[in-house]
């Protein structure tokens, strides 16, 4: 055997393309962090774009979808508007992650993802749905502190939009450069305060006939105070 072949073979055997076995939850964790979970070539989100996994708030993060700690044994999702975990996951999967097909109850990937969600729910205690208050009627609000606004931007908007002014670091082409888009509002929404259009987008996301793939922020995910601060940061 030549010196070239031996290490090659050894490497293959040792690290192995086929590990002896792997806990499904471990594979589910990978899927959780991988945008390719959705087969849509337009998707750039993974589950972790919008969710954290720890029981406590994570420093510097205000995830739009909240934490998934304990999620597998909650009674309801989206504030109780969904009672089935898979259907709730599929809301995100088809509407935000643009998957043409929902995850099935018995698919290998989907089962692995489920096992990971169970691992995130160590107590196995049934828990009530976390509150999710949809702000239906959009209204203006008092402006807040600019520095807090910047913190909020970094903690929750930046993961998708990147830099507010330049869009640098944004997750994909379709996540608009927010300050640029806001400049178009006086022509697209004449007579409407641009801040109100931003509030509407943040509160309604892709719903209420708006379209796109941005998730809506419930009152619990983002308080009016923090949104007021964000508006100041955006110069609105």
């Amino acid at each position: 055997m030549s010196t070239l072949r031996l290490p090659l073979l050894a490497a293959l055997v040792l690290s192995g393309c086929r590990p002896a076995s792997m806990a499904a939850a471990h594979h589910g964790e990978r899927l959780f962090h991988d945008a390719r979970l959705s087969s849509s070539s337009f998707n750039s989100y993974s589950c972790d774009t919008c969710h954290t996994t720890s029981p406590e708030p994570e420093a510097g993060r205000l995830p739009v979808g909240g934490t998934l700690h304990g999620v597998a044994f909650r009674d309801g999702f989206f504030g109780g508007a969904e009672t089935d975990l898979l259907e709730a996951v599929n809301v995100c999967f088809t509407r935000f992650m643009r998957s043409p097909d929902p995850l099935s109850r018995d698919g290998v990937q989907s089962r692995a993802l489920y096992e990971y969600l169970v691992r995130l729910s160590p107590s196995r205690e049934p828990a009530p749905a976390r509150p999710f208050t949809v702000v239906r009627q959009v209204a203006d609000m008092p402006r807040g502190d600019r520095a807090r606004g910047e913190e909020v931007w970094r903690a929750t908007c930046q993961v998708c939009h990147g830099d507010a002014q330049t869009g640098q670091g944004r997750i994909g082409e379709d996540a608009v450069v927010v300050s640029e888009t806001v400049q178009t509002y006086p022509t697209t929404f004449p007579g409407v305060a641009p801040a109100l259009v931003v509030v509407e987008k943040v509160r309604h996301g892709r719903f209420f006939g708006i379209g796109g793939t941005m998730p809506p922020y419930s009152r619990e995910a983002l308080s009016d105070e923090d949104l007021g601060a964000l508006l100041t940061f955006l110069g609105l």
């Binding site: 086929r18 990978r30 390719r36 009672t83 692995a112 096992e115």
Partner: peptide, 22 residues
């Protein structure tokens, strides 16, 4: 295989997956 593809020897421990609770 791409990391996304499920390894062939996954060990599942939850049966059934995604139980319907309602």
């Amino acid at each position: 295989p791409r990391e996304l593809d499920a390894p062939p020897d996954l060990v599942f421990s939850e049966e059934p997956a995604w139980p319907v609770r309602t």
